[in-house]
Computed example of a mutant assay.
Amino acid sequence: MKKYDVAIIGAGIAGASIASEIGAHRSVLLLEAEDQPGYHATGRSAAFWTETYGGPLVQPLTSASRDFLENPPREFSETSFLSKRGAINISRDEEAHLAEKFVADFADSEVAMEFWNPDQMRALLPNLKEGWSNAVYEPDCCDIDVAALHAAYLKDAKRKSVDLRCRSRVVQIERLGDGWAIEAGDQHFHSDILINASGAWADEIAAMAAIMPVGIQPYARNIVQIETDPPSSPNRPLVVGLDGSFYFKPEAGGNYWISPHDEIPDVPSDVAPDELSVATAIDRFEAVLDVEVKKVTRKWAGLRSFAPDRLPVIGFDPDDHGFFWFAGQGGFGIQTAPAAAQLAKSLFLKEPPNPGLEKIDAVRYGPARFH
């Protein structure tokens, strides 16, 4: 039974980022059930960074992650993970109140946003149909190179001697004195502390360790890639419905990524695309832009896992300080990864937070709020 200071369950963006942060301070085992890390939620991201995504209580983590993503430490990456996109949040003629509420929700933040009139909207969306006259523009919205970010975290963790074990699904966890006995795959390990970064499986892992689950629910989100006539222009902005019913993003090659912004309750699994959701995505897209959808070129689904209050769960379990939660990151886990992992590191090592994180209320994200 090989022994470690820490065992992290899950090597998606959550597990990889916290492994990178604490790898230089503890001996770390990183367990991944699949053949390769990031197979589930991380590998199926819509790949954008926008400060308003997730709401005003998630925004501080997103904003605090920007500098790292834009200008990462040279030893971590020689290139930025962000590229400018811009986002237009829109609503129908009769829904001006949605735009007003959207801006009001972030009034206490420093998020850059502007009310736009129809002429400004059509300058960037020349195919916009009639009936859409309210818009809030976010100039700082960016695309994220998710694969590069995840790979950089894994590479940095390896450089810090983190032991990554793929094809190692956890099948048993047992409290053993002051530590944990873990059976994963056909191997046995021991760790002093367990970090639950298992995404959709977070409550299952907690129950396996005899820890009270916090109510993390996986939801399926469908994304469709379509080819249109006229084709998309890759420099166009992300477009988000202020009523929460769609978003779409132009891609290179003349395609769009579109989503009905659906949340279908599911169980932890390798979720497949839902045909009704695919049809809904196309229908809602065609209600916004006057373009012809020629064909679906790709479709996929991923699980986004939320705690009951839709905030991340970060910190030691109040009933067992050998169990650390790093889960419930919904659809914002990529864009908040740097700040969330740095915050988790400070809580885990019981040290002051990094500069820039001092004003973030860590208690707000702690698991004790569910007890």
Results as ranks from 00 to 15, higher is better:
4 Y>R: 02
4 Y>N: 00
7 A>E: 05
12 G>C: 08
19 A>P: 07
20 S>Q: 13
21 E>R: 13
25 H>K: 15
33 A>K: 14
36 Q>T: 13
44 R>F: 03
45 S>P: 04
47 A>I: 07
50 T>N: 15
56 P>D: 12
67 D>L: 08
70 E>P: 01
72 P>R: 10
72 P>E: 05
81 F>N: 01
82 L>A: 03
86 G>I: 04
88 I>G: 02
89 N>H: 15
90 I>C: 10
95 E>R: 12
95 E>T: 00
98 L>S: 06
102 F>K: 07
104 A>F: 08
105 D>I: 00
107 A>F: 02
110 E>Y: 01
112 A>G: 00
115 F>H: 09
121 M>Q: 09
125 L>A: 07
126 P>G: 03
128 L>V: 06
128 L>H: 04
129 K>N: 12
131 G>V: 00
134 N>A: 00
135 A>Q: 02
138 E>H: 13
140 D>N: 14
147 A>D: 12
150 H>V: 01
159 R>N: 11
161 S>R: 14
163 D>V: 01
164 L>N: 03
165 R>V: 05
171 V>R: 13
173 I>A: 05
176 L>Y: 11
179 G>V: 06
184 A>W: 04
185 G>N: 05
186 D>C: 03
187 Q>H: 14
188 H>N: 08
188 H>T: 07
195 I>T: 06
203 D>Y: 02
207 A>I: 00
207 A>F: 00
209 A>Y: 07
211 I>P: 02
213 P>H: 11
214 V>N: 08
217 Q>F: 04
219 Y>G: 01
220 A>R: 15
220 A>C: 12
224 V>H: 10
228 T>Y: 06
229 D>T: 08
230 P>R: 13
232 S>W: 04
236 R>E: 15
241 G>M: 05
246 F>M: 15
247 Y>C: 06
248 F>P: 03
250 P>Q: 14
251 E>H: 09
257 W>A: 14
258 I>V: 14
266 D>F: 05
269 S>E: 01
270 D>Y: 01
277 S>E: 15
281 A>W: 13
284 R>I: 03
294 K>G: 00
298 R>T: 02
298 R>D: 11
299 K>M: 13
301 A>N: 13
304 R>K: 11
314 I>C: 02
319 D>T: 11
320 D>A: 09
324 F>T: 02
335 Q>K: 13
336 T>D: 08
343 L>V: 12
343 L>D: 00
350 K>I: 01
354 N>Y: 04
364 R>M: 15
364 R>S: 10
365 Y>M: 06
367 P>M: 10
368 A>H: 11
